[in-house]
Design a binder for these strands. Structure first.
Lengths: 133, 133
DNA sequence: CCGTATCCAGGGGGATACTG
DNA sequence: CAGTATCCCCCTGGATACGG
């Protein structure tokens, strides 16, 4: 069946799109967006929520999302300081597709890692599965 | 909490998921998957379809997708040689979510680039929009 | 036609320490 | 609490050239 919508048009668009996709395809962006999709969160909540992310990478990820107009950053100059992050309208419009991809990743962790192991095994031992050496 | 589905469980899963997401989040993966979603394609067709991708990056992207069990690579040893790439079942299960993200990127190119320009302008001229210096 | 090999610049991303 | 700054490694990704 044919798409009613022009999927990939031409030349320049691909380059621009791939640049945009690279922006939101940082190592942690998807997970951060998944968390913010539920509700606004402050820095430390995100840090705890993602788990494994460093302070530095969380900052960079959030700055990048902010730069792309996907999240807002609200500073409350109290003591201790408080900073809340929240998806913009644009951010929410991306959140659902991203959520799908994210859930897919969580659901298929096993399969993916199995496929990788399989592929790597073949690549490492091209002589066959009958124990060489 | 409230979600009926355990979205982001804990610790190790985040690290594994982010690794998986990084794999499929290469600069060109989304575009390649979008093309393969319609039908199997050979190397040169993909090269033409994506436009802007180098031979090297197309090869690496496809190898990576193959490693993750998302595409199959079929070699027909004719002269000239012919190599077809096709989404696996796993690949197809990812294709729809990815398609959503890809379409989102194409639709919002303008907004994103505008947001970036806006952000960069503020970052470059922090003293305000009234001609500083 | 379909790659692989090589060179090379840039940035992603981790660890750690310091500031307001 | 919420960052910045620094160091440093390695991977990404482009260009080019070569091989089957």
């Amino acid at each position: 069946m044919k798409e009613t919508e022009p999927v990939i048009r031409h030349t320049a668009d691909c380059l621009r799109a791939s640049r945009v996709l690279s922006s939101i395809a940082g190592k942690w962006s998807v997970l951060v967006i998944m968390l913010l999709r539920e509700q606004p969160l402050r820095f430390s909540e995100l840090k705890r929520g993602v788990d494994g992310i460093s302070q530095r990478m969380l900052t960079l990820t959030l700055r990048n999302l902010e730069r792309n107009g996907l999240v807002t950053r609200t500073v409350t100059p109290s003591i201790p300081p408080r900073v809340d992050y929240e998806l913009t309208g644009l951010g929410h419009s991306l959140a659902d597709p991203i959520q799908s991809v994210g859930l897919w990743a969580f659901r298929h962790l096993e399969k993916i890692e199995a496929a990788q192991a399989h592929y790597d095994a073949r690549a490492t031992a091209p002589s066959g599965p009958d124990g060489e050496n």
